[in-house]
Design a protein around this nucleic acid. Structure first.
Lengths: 199, 199
DNA sequence: CCTACCGATCGGTAGG
DNA sequence: CCTACCGATCGGTAGG
């Protein structure tokens, strides 16, 4: 029972801070996430919270990383076993829709929300959000390209165009769930994805 | 030169406040719009600003109304002359895309941004945003239904499904412009709309 | 429309 | 990890 906290304790505290932060930021945004509120909800002092990150911006970047791990676990990992190309592209879309339908983040897609919050504010947070979208789009585009090369999608298909349209469908789904609480939206999204990806 | 401000003066001041408010809120959100900043930029006192609306929430609702007038002028009015049905639906989509391409609001679509900012915060502002989307979708759905009835779209077309997909394309465009500054996005959106609305 | 003010909260720091 | 504190800013009010 040393009065000093161990490295493991410190990592546990840091992880607990990030867990609460993701929940708060999902519902109220990365700016609505305040040090004081975090400290109160975690039973800590403000300086105790801030000491793990150094600044609010560094906390926001760490929260984006944590949210990215969750996205990877929920949407990417379940799909790596699927065959590259059209099969995997369809599986990715289904995992993506399911992630929104199940409400993995209570405020909807964490990154779509962050993109809207920060697209007009230059800085590291905006850059990190944009980089995550670039990475995600590149993964989808790669699978679309493989599907075209394999003859599973028409040879005239532009992978970038296709991914643009798929992203739109998912954004429409996110919007319908979060603003309108429309229970038919997931069915609509699946229907549209199926139509767009049929051979 | 009466020391008392006339009703016309007061309305002019109110209009000036709303003009600045729309510009600020478009870039930084309806919460980023603060009374103090507004007062500084307009060379007024905070209480002078607040006196026109009574509360920040009432100001936010008035700003949504003003933004709605701009949307109507830019997207709806240019199109009322078009023939009802498929012709008008296509014209609406083109006006909608053009509104984003021209950057009518510097922060992209005012209502998509407001939807993301308020979808997790119950209250009158959230309600006003949702009502605006309901109205806009109803207009699009009506034209889609007319197009189906006239035989200009396949009889199997579900107008609600179609409008869901069109909204997604516009949201993907908004996202590509605001986050990625992608100059090809408007072309992609037009291409997808054309493909979806061809007979 | 103004000045002057309220309590609350913000991110962050000093010092331990 | 804490207490105690900083200057700035928030929405809003009193009183004129």
């Amino acid at each position: 029972m040393s009065p000093r906290r161990s490295v493991a304790d410190a990592l546990g505290t840091r992880s607990a801070i990030l867990g609460r932060s993701v929940a708060i930021a999902s519902a109220e945004g990365l700016e609505g996430l305040t040090i004081g509120r975090l400290a109160t909800e975690l039973g800590m002092s403000k300086s105790g919270v801030l000491g793990h990150f150094g600044s609010k911006e560094a906390l926001q970047l760490a929260v984006l990383d944590r949210a990215g791990e969750i996205f990877r676990t929920e949407v990417w990992e379940p799909v790596v076993a699927a065959a590259p190309g059209l099969v995997r592209l369809r599986a990715l879309c289904e995992a993506w829709i399911s992630y929104l339908e199940r409400g993995v983040f209570p405020g909807g897609c964490f990154f779509v929300a962050a993109a809207h919050e920060f697209d007009g504010r230059p800085g590291p947070v905006r850059g990190a959000v944009e980089a995550r979208f670039d990475t995600w789009r590149a993964r989808l585009t790669k699978e679309a390209g493989r599907a075209v090369a394999a003859g599973d999608l028409p040879g005239s298909t532009d992978p970038d165009q296709l991914v643009f349209e798929l992203l739109g469908l998912v954004m429409a789904l996110n919007h319908a769930i979060q603003l309108h609480r429309d229970p038919r939206a997931a069915t609509r999204a699946r229907h549209a994805v199926r139509a767009r990806l049929e051979t």
